[in-house]
Amino acid sequence: MKILTYIQDGSLRVGIHTDAGILDAQHALEASGHRGGTTALSLQELIAGGPELLRLLNTLAGQAAGGADPSESIVLLDEAALELAPCVPSPGKIICVGLNYRKHAEETNSPIPQTPILFSKFSNALAAHLEPVPLPAASQKVDYEAELVIVMGRTARNISKEDAYEYVYGYCCGNDLSARDLQMRTPQWLLGKTCDKFAPIGPYLVTADEVGDPNQLNISCSVNGELRQSSNTADMIFKCDEIVSYISQHFTLEPGDIIMTGTPEGVMLGYPQEQQVYLQAGDTVTVAVEKLGSLTNTMTV
């Protein structure tokens, strides 16, 4: 199932993507007699509802898309007319893995990590599909980073690699935008990583059952239509199950937490210095991950 979050009258709504349009999850549940009240279903509630709620919404989405809505009151929305929010609008943690693609480590002349390199972003960095991203005045070297993002579905603490996928809810596209001049100012990367809107995610949160093996997905990034990154998650040094297990050995992962799993080769930092042209106002960046869709953002001043 492809899930998105959108804004309506100042409130967040959860939508289910179908080929015929977007199903408002709360409206569909109310119309079918499965949920009442005035508070819209949140993504956290959807995750907490587990497979049973997913199956119900999948059935309702199929009925609406096929014109077989028993209540005849469920209307599918035009996705292009919606104001999207980040597909995971309020993760408790945004965890990132650095230098996790072998060829990316090589292009930046970095040693191959022996254990995952972890850093974080804050919630101010979240941005939605098609949301403008302001370039920080303090930086002249903003770079793109196409990434596969893991979204947690269950509380995970000290779990094994073998059990890790049981705790994953789904995946989405992400762009780990990085101000390289700020990032490299100190040994801690945080300053260059969590500028406002520097973690676009979306457009969809795709449930794990639709994705299959997350370590075999094509991943790419283009700038103004020019392909800059083209790889496969098979090049990851630490696979998704290893990452989830490793993090859980050190701190607890909660439902809705997101993990950005690293970027492949092709970032501007890896170019020879005389060829480096960093993102400018007006540049449009598109990240695409197989089975997850495409995430596009335009840089602004």
Rank of each mutant, 00 (worst) to 15 (best):
L4M: 10
L4A: 04
D19A: 09
I22C: 03
Q26H: 15
E30V: 14
G33A: 03
R35T: 06
G37V: 06
T38C: 11
T39V: 13
L46D: 01
G50V: 05
L54Q: 12
R55V: 09
L60T: 04
G62P: 07
A68G: 05
I74H: 02
L76G: 05
D78A: 06
A81C: 06
L82Y: 06
P86M: 02
V88I: 13
C96R: 07
H104P: 10
H104R: 04
E106S: 11
P111V: 08
I112N: 11
P113F: 08
P113S: 11
T115K: 15
F122T: 15
A125S: 15
P132I: 00
A138F: 01
S139E: 01
K141D: 05
V142C: 14
Y144C: 11
T155N: 09
G174E: 04
Q183T: 12
T186M: 10
T186R: 11
P187K: 10
G192I: 03
T194W: 04
C195D: 06
D196I: 04
F198L: 05
A199C: 14
P203N: 02
Y204H: 07
Q216A: 14
N218Y: 08
I219F: 08
S222D: 15
E226I: 14
L227K: 13
S231L: 09
F238S: 03
C240L: 05
I243S: 07
Y246Q: 05
E265R: 08
G266P: 13
M268P: 05
G270V: 09
Q273G: 13
Q280A: 15
G282R: 04
G282H: 09
V287T: 14
T296Q: 08
